[in-house]
Design a protein around this nucleic acid. Sequence first.
RNA 1: GCCGAUGUGGCGGAAUUGGUAGACGCACUGGACUCAAAAUCCAGCGGGAAACCAUGUGGGUUCGAGUCCCACCAUCGGUACCA
Length: 807
Amino acid sequence: MSYNFKEIEKKWQDKWYAEGTFNAKNDFTMKKWYGLIEFPYPSGQGLHVGHPRSYTALDIIARKRRMQGYNVLFPIGFDAFGLPAENYAIKNHIHPKITTEKNINHFREQLKSIGFSFDWSREINTTDPEYYKWTQWIFIQLYKHGLAYKATMPINFCTGCKVGLANEEVVNGVCERCGSPVVQKEKSQWMLRITKYAQRLIDDLDDVDYLDKIKAQQKNWIGRSEGAEVTFKIADSNETLTVYTTRPDTLFGATYMVVAPEHPIIDKLADKITNIDEIKEYKHQASLKSDFERSELNKEKTGCEIKGIKAINPLTNEEIPIWISDYVLITYGTGAIMAVPGHDTRDHEFAKKFKLPIVQVIKPVDEAIECDIDKEAFTDVETGILMNSGFLNDLPVVEAKKKVIEFLEDKHIGKKQVNYKLRDWVFSRQRYWGEPIPMVYCEKCGWVPVPEEELPLKLPDVEDYEPGENGESPLARHAEWLNTTCPHCGGKAKRETDTMPQWAGSSWYYLRYMDPHNDKALASKEALKYWSPVDWYNGGMEHTTLHLLYSRFWHKFLYDIGVVPTKEPYQKRTSHGMILGSNGEKMSKSKGNVVNPDDIVNEFGADAFRVYEMFMGPFDQTAPWSMESIRGCAKFLDRVWNLQNLLVDGETYSPKFEKAMHRAIKKVSSDIEEMKFNTAVSTFMTLVNDFYKEKTINKAEFKTFLQLLNPFAPHITEELWQTVFGGKEMLAYMKWPTYDEEKTIADEITLPIQFNGKLKATIMISLDENEESVKEKVHQAVEDKLENKTIVKEIYVKNKIYNIVMK
RNA sequence: GCCGAUGUGGCGGAAUUGGUAGACGCACUGGACUCAAAAUCCAGCGGGAAACCAUGUGGGUUCGAGUCCCACCAUCGGUACCA
């Protein structure tokens, strides 16, 4: 018989959320636990079945922590600024504020219908002026500390819509919406100096408990490399050309140089360049290409020799040619390289194409290794030995690097240098639906921050959100907003019309949860001290390099200026796998494989939904949705409900189930900590099967079972606890069951007997039975099979296995 | 190319970390209940008549390998001319 989940789940949800059952307590003397999930973007489509995977997982941990006596903070909010709401507004002429509010209401109902133990009294919304007041405040602090600056940067510009586009809106080099080509357009933008924190963002990963793959991906993204800067003289000139290289040891093999098209040396030496028109034409062609084209259409390298000037290799003193090519990027290193075609694949390709000399300066230490420098660059560092390199000859690569850097530093023509791939964060968006950047431009005083007492600087209510011509922000059209007075001199001034990117509000939201209604500070010192850091943060891998890195950066800055008490925001970071459609493809409207959480809750109930999401597969791996499997989980809960029909009295576990109970407590407890939810669920199922097999369960067993299952299926378990046991106190706050290690160990063991590692039989032995006795039993058991065999040796691994090696 | 993962029945997946491969669930088959169906309960369920064969492929280490080592293949995610 099925239980009435609709009625039961509603009943408990109403009680929990009306009474604030799961709200964090303001008792700062208790031990605390702060669990965080990525707050959703309230899209028009409503909740995706992917959201509850992460939410259920952390909800289970949060619920377990409450039972373990922690003061738990498990908050929820909405990351509500962003493009979809704005695009929807442009299309349908409904203010983003209205759609956002509507969507949030929908999300809130959906989230409540799944029974998450969120503290709804702390709900936040990034578009609330009382919230973004502090987002703006942080920006001003960044500006005051020299970490926010204006720079002219190329942006993606759609030639059709005449708007600036975010990178995510550029698909294969064309505009996602209209399909017109996207070009790069120079625009003055606010930038945040995240690069200043690059090294600390790497180093401090040592102090946090993130999954290794998350650490690896962040390190990769920051992209630290060690090498040297080397300065080359330009022949017959006072100019020099500085390059960055990770292989200074190959300097003797540098046979030419290459500069990026945007490199300033071309303008500086324009008079000397004999083919300046050709070079200008190359520069022009390169500027027409988008970043996308420069990287995607790179099958064939292009380039052009800069005639009339030569560089001098500081070690060989030979004059070498200088080329221009767009495979060298102005944004990395010095925008110029020394080319060592013998030992760099790209330089080799370029040298081959333009018939430039290739010199070998490294050979493999093992002569047996094939190495034909004319065919292919030899790039192996581990096995390399220097040759044709004067004072570096015969040194291994690692030694040669050290020695050459010493030499360069001694002669003041180079130095050790560390570089990062990480670039500063482009913080401006020419969009309406975002936090206004609280800056004012005054002809006399330059950029001046809005005084802090005037925050929040509210986003004005406008009717037209269309981006302006040439990629101007829609706010630029609103004179009333635009024109203001300079907070510094009182003269006429104009406001910044760009808004902040989607990432701004989410970079510090976990701090606001600690004290969400504070109007004096982003949170009180006491709350920050008590709740920091977030103990466990779960989210998607797709946020590893942007959101996670950005918020670590902001947090470190806030730490530096004494606002927050910890160096890192999140002590532990884990990630969940994506949920795919039943056909194994990503869920999308066009593929028609989208599953709506509301339908699942209606048909199977919230508890079944939660149990299924945890049971479907390993938590950190992608998993396809299956309607059949969720039915199995609903059936399991029916069986749990009907256990009450088998119930007998009993103050303690019956001998029949004692071991099973202790083992289940142990297994479920550790599985939750390790996020092995799928095997925890199978433990529950096995246990239920055992109760059915024996057609009995006593009260002690049932009580423990309900407690263990409560974090996974909170509604049905509370209901059974109340109706069957007459429990007054809520299960959710009862002490988490404990187990006795000794009682998890079996005293009888099935011992496998192998012949040459292959299973032949099993026997029962008692735990730690002496070897003589085991041997006797084994031989008795396989006597007949031993005829005509010569035993070579016998291996007994205590309580594990008995293997007979024979001929 | 580089970085990270993954590969086990018809399907989703287990496997105490080197010790009985296939727990648990789905699907399927049979039985009970029912006038009947659904639901429920019980039983079976990798292949093979068996010896045996089976954890992407080929080697290796070991008394013993899904698990460790070497060389590959395939799929997915991230990143990409980063010098």
